[in-house]
Write a protein that binds this DNA or RNA. Structure first.
Length: 416
RNA sequence: GCGGGUGUAGCUCAGUUGGUUAGAGCGCAAGAUUGUGGCUCUUGAGGCCGUCGGUUCGAUCCCGAUCACUCGCCCCA
């Protein structure tokens, strides 16, 4: 059996249509915010991800497609979009032209067990705003995400979860307090959480284990450890969102898995995709650029899974928009050359033309119905002799004779 | 990476308590219709019953492994 590689998928038909719709819609919205497109290579030196995402993160420790090329370099298929974009900014000296607003779409790769809404090769749209460190930037990025979802008519299916991870100082203070607190319950924690206590204690906050949750209830709260600056920053972001009427919930347990995040973190989440409910997510990453060897510029960005968006679009039964297709129906094989020539002429005039290929006339008309044509142009010996065509409107049960020379104008007028 | 479920036609699914040529509906193709689609009727094509191995005189069916899909965990988009 010729199977595609595990966790990969062929895209065609309605799925391909939806995929394109998502990308085109998102880019059109991003353009209104003055985002420019960027395309980075599909793979990078492994260091790009290892150094930035955090050695203990799941992505780096078990999910990367890493391989050695023939020159002995360790390369990795990109598991996410932010690190390559930041690398590209440094590589190309774009740090001279901050602020930058960049939009991308493309394939990402993670070696995971596939599930609904989770593939090994998946595709993201994403946006990064690099330079300004102001709550306005955070709010603008969230607004962009919201507007993209809105343009796809998905905003009502999704809830914005918002949190702050504070600056480095606040986070370190809280982390210490949390670990101190959890140490006393160490033996009661789930095995996953015991592990997390070492690697990423904040993650324990959103554990699904019941016992963990009970313990967490009396744990110290992040907001009590935020310094004034972090608090003020987050308050301002919230004020902007409220002012823009973007609904959200402050989810104090929202933690993001990658090392480079700080301050604002957000996820648009749906309940209708099972365990993979996160549809568009991101956050602020102030230390990333410097960590990668660039200047100390801050940034905020998000990524969104195109496949997940498409699943949601399918669930709400999106209607395929009928194009204005017209099918030319030769009454027999003898009229095919003439019909082909006519098709080319009409296409050149800007019309969408298909040809009914084989069988008797009945079959050819049937095909014109099936491909959703608005009309059939019937060409037989009589029509050729009289330089006319029979135009049959397929959803109006109406038919009229039109001179061949006027066909293009006839349809262009009809469709306008 | 861990645990559960499922694999029969392009799609949705029957079925065989182990026994010649494995079924239906939809879809596809041809015809009924020598120039008129959606409805109807007739006919046809299409399956190594996911793959490999074991048990058996004989396996699509029982057993094992493997692969894929799926649900949950982990994690994320």
């Amino acid at each position: 059996m010729l199977q595609p590689v595990r966790g990969t998928k062929d895209l065609f038909g309605i799925e391909a249509v939806l995929y394109r719709k998502v990308v085109d819609t998102a880019y059109a919205v991003a353009l209104r915010y003055n985002f420019q497109e960027i395309q980075t290579p599909i793979f990078e030196f492994s260091q790009v991800f290892q150094r930035t995402l955090g050695e203990t993160s799941d992505v780096v420790s078990k999910e990367m497609y890493t391989f050695e090329d023939r020159g002995g370099e360790s390369l990795t298929l990109r598991p996410e979009g932010t690190a390559p974009v930041v690398r590209a900014i440094i590589s190309n000296g774009l740090t001279q032209s901050l602020p930058l607003k960049l939009f991308y779409s493309g394939a990402m790769f993670r070696y995971e067990r596939p599930q609904k809404g989770r593939q090994r090769q998946f595709h993201q749209i994403g946006a990064e705003l690099i330079g300004p460190k102001t709550p306005l930037a955070d709010a603008e990025m969230i607004a962009l995400g919201y507007e993209v979802l809105k343009a796809l008519n998905l905003h009502s299916e999704v809830i914005l979860n918002l949190n702050t991870l504070g600056d480095a100082e606040s986070r370190t203070a809280y982390r210490t307090a949390l670990v101190d607190f959890l140490q006393q319950y160490k033996n009661d924690l789930s095995s996953d959480s015991k592990d997390r206590l070492e690697r990423n204690p904040l993650r324990i906050l959103d554990s699904k284990d019941e016992t963990d949750q009970k313990i967490i209830q009396s744990a110290p709260l992040f907001q009590d450890y935020l310094n004034d600056e972090s608090k003020a920053y987050f308050n301002q972001v919230q004020r902007y969102l409220t002012d823009l009427n973007i609904p959200y919930i402050h989810n104090q347990k929202l933690v993001r898995g990658l090392d480079y995040y700080c301050h604002t973190a957000f996820e648009f989440v749906t309940t209708s995709l099972g365990a993979q409910g996160t549809v568009l997510a991101g956050g602020r990453y102030d230390g990333l650029m410097k960590q990668m060897g660039g200047p100390d510029a801050s940034g905020i960005g998000w990524g969104s899974g195109i496949e997940r968006l498409c699943l949601l679009l399918q669930e709400q039964a999106t209607v395929v928009t009928a194009s204005n297709l017209i099918t030319i129906v030769p009454t027999s094989d003898a009229e095919e050359p003439f019909a082909f020539h006519l098709a080319q002429t009409l296409r050149a005039a800007g019309l969408y033309i298909d040809i009914g290929y084989s069988g008797n006339m009945s079959k050819r008309l049937k095909k014109a119905s099936k491909n959703n044509s608005i009309a059939a142009i019937i060409i037989g010996a009589d029509e050729i002799a009289s330089n006319t065509a029979q135009v049959k409107f397929l959803n109006e049960s109406r038919q009229e004779t039109v001179p061949l020379s006027q066909l293009a104008d006839f349809f262009n007028t009809y469709l306008s």
